[in-house]
C-alpha cells in the first residue's frame, strides 16, 4: 500500500504543480479526485499482489511443463495463441484502429462510409494481432535456439526502415504507435514469466540474456505489418 502511494506520488505532484502554479486554476472536484486516487492506490496494491500469487507462477509453471513435455509444435502454437488472443481484444488497439480508419477515410485511401471504415479497422486489428502472434512465436523459438536477441531486433529495425520508405505516409504514424499499444497490463507479466521460465528450464540458457525480449518483438512486428496493411489497402 505504501509502495503504491509512492508510485503515484509523482503524478499527483505533476498535476498539482501545473494546475495550481502554471495554469493558476483551482482543482475541480477535489473530493472526486481524492476518491479516484484512493481507487488507483487500492487497485495497484491488489494488482501487484495478484501478480506474485497468480500471473507469475502460472506463466513460469507452464513454461516449465512445456519445456519438459518436449513438444516444440505445441509450445509454438501456445505462443502464437497467447500473442494473437491477447492482442485481438485489446481495447487500446481497437481505439487506434478506429482512428486509423478515420485517417484513411479522410485521406481518400478508402471510401468514406461507415461500412468501409469498420472493415478497414477490423482488418488492421487482425493484421496487428497476427503480427503479435508471430512475434511471440519467433521470440520463443529464439529462446529455445539461443539466438542473440540483437540480430533479430536489428533485422526488424531494417524491416521498419524499408517499409517506412515505401508505405503511404498516412499509415506511418499509426503503424509506429500500434507497436506501443499492443502489450497490455496482463499480457506483459505473463509473457515475461513465460520467457524467463523457458530460459531457466532449458539447459544452457541464461534467464537474464535469453529470457527477456518477447515484449520487444511484440512491439516491433506490428509496425512492419501495420505499414504492410496500409500498402495492400492503398
Amino acid at each position: 500500500m505504501i509502495e503504491s502511494i509512492r508510485d503515484l506520488a509523482p503524478i499527483i505532484a505533476v498535476i498539482a504543480f501545473f494546475q495550481l502554479l502554471v495554469l493558476q486554476q483551482p482543482i475541480p472536484d477535489l473530493g472526486g479526485l481524492l476518491v479516484g486516487t484512493l481507487f488507483v492506490v487500492i487497485g495497484l496494491t491488489l494488482f501487484v499482489h495478484g501478480l506474485r500469487l497468480g500471473l507469475f507462477p502460472i506463466g513460469e509453471s507452464m513454461a516449465h511443463d512445456f519445456a519438459h513435455k518436449g513438444s516444440l509444435l505445441w509450445l509454438l502454437l501456445f505462443a502464437f495463441a497467447l500473442g494473437f488472443g491477447t492482442t485481438v481484444a485489446e481495447p487500446a488497439l481497437i481505439a487506434v484502429a478506429a482512428e486509423a480508419a478515420q485517417v484513411a477515410a479522410v485521406g481518400g485511401m478508402i471510401e468514406n462510409s461507415e461500412a468501409s471504415m469498420t472493415s478497414y479497422a477490423d482488418g488492421l486489428r487482425m493484421t496487428v494481432a497476427l503480427s503479435v502472434g508471430i512475434a511471440i512465436t519467433v521470440g520463443v523459438l529464439r529462446i529455445i535456439k539461443g539466438w542473440p536477441v540483437q540480430y533479430l531486433i536489428i533485422g526488424g529495425y531494417m524491416g521498419v526502415v524499408i517499409m517506412t520508405a515505401v508505405a503511404p505516409k498516412e499509415i506511418i504514424g499509426i503503424a509506429y504507435d500500434s507497436g506501443g499499444v499492443t502489450t497490455s497490463t496482463i499480457t506483459v507479466p505473463l509473457v515475461t514469466a513465460l520467457g524467463v521460465g523457458l530460459a531457466s528450464s532449458i539447459r544452457g540458457r541464461n534467464p537474464m540474456t535469453d529470457g527477456f525480449g518477447l515484449i520487444a518483438f511484440a512491439s516491433l512486428t506490428p509496425m512492419i505489418f501495420g505499414m504492410g496493411y496500409g500498402m495492400v489497402i492503398q
Binding site: G43, L46, H49, G50, G54, L55, I58, I186
Partner: peptide, 8 residues
Amino acid sequence: GFVFVLLG
C-alpha cells in the same frame, strides 16, 4: 491471484 489481478 487472478481474482486479485482482476479486482486490482
